[in-house]
């Protein structure tokens, strides 16, 4: 370096311009390849593994803080919380008993109707890392990745409803998009009557838009929206949101409907990932799934 520093300035500028040009072209090529899904997964994963220690470090303070808070919780508060959780667990178990009977009945009825059996996914808990990702999207970073069989498009839920889907898997971490992202769309149906529509993110954590409902659609405030399973990216039947305001405007073709997500999108720290791959079951379903996924990611 010491020698080259004294070189004449004249040789420098063209070389710099050429190098920049080459790198810009390379960047554009990378972006194009990256867009055509998956050509650069290996690159991403290698660099991602190198970034992982940094993510752990960044995440550490909040993890430590949580642990300290847990550690310093008073005995009394823990006892209260414990008894509350026990009651909650008892109630949930009671509800699950009923669910088992319903599930069996549902399977029998579906068999009578010759319908395909529903895929029930395996569930696993993941933690959201306190690491900020993409500044242009509602993204979260999860602490499990390809090593734990996480796959692209996997559904993420919390205790109350759908949170989002995985969009990128690293070896140890994965990134997910929340349903509140303005570029996210989710096929839903009204639980009460099966009316199907699409819920779009708005960029606000507490609001989803349902822009494609005609004025005469049978939907009212308080209706529960569940995933319809159309498109194949999300398993059917998971709660998504509750309809808030329904504003029917006579001059407009579509009603103005907003809904509140069931999941606490900006408060959860633990989420659940569902292993559910119906698209592998049938080629036809796979086709619609691919189309739907494209639609959903846009």
């Amino acid at each position: 370096m010491a020698g080259s520093y004294k070189k004449s300035r004249a040789t420098k500028t063209p070389a710099l311009g050429l190098r920049v040009l080459a790198l810009v072209v390379l960047s554009i090529l990378l972006m194009l390849l990256d867009r055509r899904n998956g050509h650069l997964d290996a690159v991403r994963q290698t660099i991602g593994a190198a970034v992982y220690p940094l993510q752990i470090t960044v995440d550490a303070p909040s993890r430590l803080w949580n642990r300290m808070r847990d550690g310093s919780a008073s005995r009394n508060r823990l006892r209260l919380e414990n008894s509350r959780l026990q009651i909650e667990s008892l109630v949930s178990k009671g509800q699950i008993q009923e669910l088992a009977a319903l599930r069996a009945e549902n399977d029998r009825l579906r068999a009578l109707l010759d319908a395909r059996e529903r895929v029930r996914g395996e569930v696993r808990v993941a933690e959201i890392m306190s690491v900020d990702a993409n500044p242009y999207r509602h993204n979260i970073v999860l602490d499990i990745g390809r090593r734990d069989d996480v796959y692209d498009g996997q559904t993420i839920i919390d205790a109350n409803g759908v949170v989002g889907q995985v969009i990128e898997t690293g070896l140890f971490t994965s990134q997910a998009i929340l349903i509140s992202d303005p570029d996210h769309a989710l096929p839903v149906e009204v639980n009460r009557n099966g009316l199907r529509t699409i819920a779009f993110g708005t960029g606000a954590f507490d609001r989803l838009d349902l822009p494609f409902l005609p004025n005469n659609a049978d939907i009212r405030s308080g209706d529960l929206l569940v995933t319809s399973g159309l498109g194949g990216a999300f398993p059917p039947g998971y709660p998504v949101a509750t309809v808030g305001m329904v504003n029917r405007i006579p001059q407009e073709p579509f009603a103005d409907v907003v809904a509140t997500p069931a999941a606490a999108l900006n408060q959860v720290r633990e989420v659940m990932l569902i292993w559910h791959r119906p698209s592998a079951a049938e080629p036809e379903a796979a086709e619609t799934a691919a189309a739907g996924e494209e639609d959903e990611r846009r």
């Binding site: 790198l23 810009v24 960047s27 500044p135 993204n139």
Partner: peptide
Amino acid sequence: VLDVAQGTPLGQHALALCVIAA
């Protein structure tokens, strides 16, 4: 590296950073 960390298209920040560096 920033693109990987942020989950942006690979090359987006790379392009922008190399241009302002130039």
